[in-house]
Design a protein around this nucleic acid. Structure first.
Lengths: 199, 199
DNA sequence: CCTGACAGACCGACGCGTCGGTCGAATCCC
DNA sequence: GGGATTCGACCGACGCGTCGGTCTGTCAGG
């Protein structure tokens, strides 16, 4: 048998890497761990990826793109800048809740790994921040919120989201979704949006 | 000569460790680096500290205590819950700006290092969060802000602060202090405080 | 002379990456 | 058609650098 579960080897390695990195973190995870988890071999690993570092970078890109895509499609079906902002918020929370591994890697394990990784992390962060920023600017233009430093706002929002999600990842606690309404209210208040009575 | 610069060896090692960890991060920093930077030896290092891990943990504790103490004294001289909150905010920002190494270690390098470190990090985070929370609760009780989930708020605030500071640490940009007013406005708005015209 | 602070050579484990090898499938030659 | 040959995906034992930690030695001071 060439492949198990019909998945090509490369994908199996990638999937295993997500699991292992999420569980043990970048440094504690050995290539050997990934190899074992994927049921392949060291040879296969280095056949598809030039290094441990590169597979992690690829993973960060892929996972970020996945979330980004989810956000974009969710946003597309909403009308009005503020509605789009709220939609994006919802998707981010939901995605994090459903795919903890993904969130763990992007928000926790990818931090403080040195310049190469930090660069990628900042790149991803600013991609997201720019989406938020764009719609905030639009909302300001439409008069839904006062005009303000949207760069700072998107940074602060990313940080707040990050922390709440990370805390939930580590300590567990109530389902993340239940915190959405209050978190949303908090964030919207922070930009001076008239909280539209909820629902 | 027993000591250089009059500082006892243990302190020299500690100081060097701060510098090295801040520059290279936990994993990239070798014990050898710290030894060299401190002008001491491996023997001295292991004479005072049982392991690399332990010195990092000690550092986290010390640095956190330093900030905490600064916050507490600053808070003591303010009257009224909201004033105390604003004071704490100011001190945190100023301390981060003045001691980048400290901030880098606490906010960036200490993330994702495994369970032992994560535990310490959470402990520190919740120490700070509890200070914020306590005064927010008091402010709510005094009627300055509506009552709300202050646990969530303090988490979100920590995250927002963290991100803004971390971003500044890495990418530089305008002095951190200049961002205080807007950041403060943002955070206060988020809890529904009437922004009291500042200063 | 003894203790404890310190020096620095050394050790051993660990983990990334390599490299010669296997094996099945596709292609070629008769 | 079928044996020979090529090719690339894949295997896994090993090499070798790195790095935390140890251990013996030295020396100053009491």
């Amino acid at each position: 048998m060439a492949h198990q579960a019909g998945q090509p080897t490369r994908d199996r390695i990638l999937a295993a890497a997500i699991d292992v990195f999420a569980r043990k973190g970048y440094h504690a995870a050995g290539v050997e761990d990934i190899v074992q988890a994927s049921g392949t071999s060291k040879g296969a690993f280095y056949h598809y990826f030039p290094s441990k570092q590169s597979i992690f970078l690829i993973l960060m890109d892929d996972l970020a793109a996945l979330v980004e895509q989810g956000v974009e499609t969710a946003i597309a079906s909403e009308h009005g800048a503020m509605a789009k902002v709220e939609g994006a918020l919802r998707i981010v929370i939901e995605t994090a809740a459903e795919q903890r591994d993904l969130a763990k890697i992007l928000l926790v394990e990818a931090v403080g790994l040195g310049p190469e990784f930090e660069q990628k992390r900042l790149e991803i962060h600013s991609r997201f921040a720019r989406v938020i920023q764009r719609h905030l600017d639009r909302a300001a233009h439409e008069g839904d919120i006062p005009s303000q430093d949207t760069v700072l706002v998107s940074q602060a929002w990313m940080g707040a989201l990050n922390e709440v999600i990370a805390q939930w990842l580590v300590s567990g606690g109530r389902p993340l979704r239940e915190r959405l309404p209050e978190l949303r209210a908090l964030l919207l208040r922070s930009i001076g949006a008239k909280t539209g009575g909820g629902r």
